[in-house]
Design a protein around this nucleic acid. Structure first.
Lengths: 218, 218
DNA sequence: ATTATTTTTTAGACTAATCTAAATTTTGTA
DNA sequence: TACAAAATTTAGATTAGTCTAAAAAATAAT
């Protein structure tokens, strides 16, 4: 069984290796975990002894099949708990991450299966991120950044990419949420910002950066 | 803020000091925590520096006002989570303790207040144990052991005293649960065992020991 | 291609929580 | 009361996770 800390490192390494197949570097992990590279080296050795990652000195780590399985189990728990917090306890979507970071480490397969059932076997968390099923299978929906859709076409918001609390609060403030219907009214060439129409009612200007973090149906 | 381990020790000391005002002895704590007396001595020193207990060398520890407040906050969380597991996730009452031992350490006052509300501000957990309110206040109901009630009188089961999983499973098996209506049909003098009638339907013989662990309304 | 910079690892130290074994103190008893 | 037994504390060691500083290796740049 993995310790609290081992779980967190494994998860970080999984997330870092999602974007690109390349091996994950020591400093990247240290940044993600807010620890020092020396600590990462130690932990990487531990995880590689446990066959959850493969590690070549000075060249970073790659996650193994088993490592992925374990990481996905943790991510499943995280996202189910986030869903619970929003759907059942009325948390806002910007309030759930920190608490789910704790809840994801609770060890009880009975609990997580019953929670899954209680929530109606959800396929995505409050940020639109897919929830791996019991076997670690993820259904990856085709989604593109809002900035890239054809003008006039109406799409549905499916997910947010990076979800810092302040970004999520900002989205709520302009009336944007998962499931909202959005179309692009105008694009500004020089800075990439766009004007959008939400649910045929509200207009909003959003920056290029923001538009890249909002994912919609194609 | 208390560490996971400090919380567990504080809770154990609180529970041990509930039964009797006397100070809690090192060995008692070691037994309750499944650790060695030497470890207890160390922790007792830490908690006394934090003013959660008062400690006189060789004479055990007594919990302070602040210690009680902190202990009750943990117990509140434990019992709210147990209630959640049974009422919302359909756990059996003999399955919840271990999971709640983990959940009680989640740090989020928002979470616990929302959970409390979600559950309808329950006053007792699935074993009938009182849930301290937000301010640590407990409503202590008058309850007596089943073995001590007057024969023929019908009473309502309110709580179980010590709730090991096997004892709870046994109670379920004979049809006994919190809220059941029970009367004593016969008492056997020499061993203190009794025959009871549950919900005017089921009869069961239970030992003196069991009867002392079932608490009913007077 | 040699040097400078960056990255990573190693070495050694620290804290929290635990242990065993030995020393100390209290308690019980002859 | 004095000694034996039990309980408690102290001393010293261990493990997990972390750090800083120094050493080593890889990468970039002149």
């Amino acid at each position: 069984m993995l310790s609290y800390t081992e779980e967190n490192y494994l998860k970080a390494i999984y997330h870092l290796s999602e974007n690109g197949q390349k091996s994950v570097l020591t400093n990247e992990v240290a940044d993600a975990m807010n620890t020092k590279p020396a600590s990462v080296t130690d932990m990487i050795k531990k995880l590689s002894v446990k066959k959850l990652i493969e590690y070549e000195k000075y060249y970073g780590a790659t996650i193994t099949k088993q490592g992925k399985v374990d990481a996905l189990a943790i991510i499943r728990k995280h996202r189910l708990w986030e869903t619970f917090l929003v759907q059942k306890l009325n948390f806002n979507w910007d309030q759930v991450h920190e608490v789910a970071e704790q809840l994801e480490h609770i060890q009880s397969s009975l609990l997580i299966e019953k929670l899954d059932e209680f929530l109606g076997n959800p396929v995505a968390d409050p940020h639109g991120h897919p929830i791996p099923d019991k076997n670690g299978k993820i259904h990856i929906a085709q989604q593109i950044p809002l900035g890239e859709i054809t003008q006039k076409k109406t799409t549905t918001v499916k997910a947010v990419k990076r979800g810092s609390p302040s970004f999520l609060q900002y989205l709520s403030k302009i009336g944007l949420y998962i499931g909202a219907h959005v179309s692009v009214l105008r694009k500004t060439e020089f800075d990439g910002s766009i004007e959008i129409l939400i649910d045929k009612k509200k207009k909003a200007f959003i920056s290029k950066e923001a538009s890249q973090n909002i994912l919609v149906t194609e």
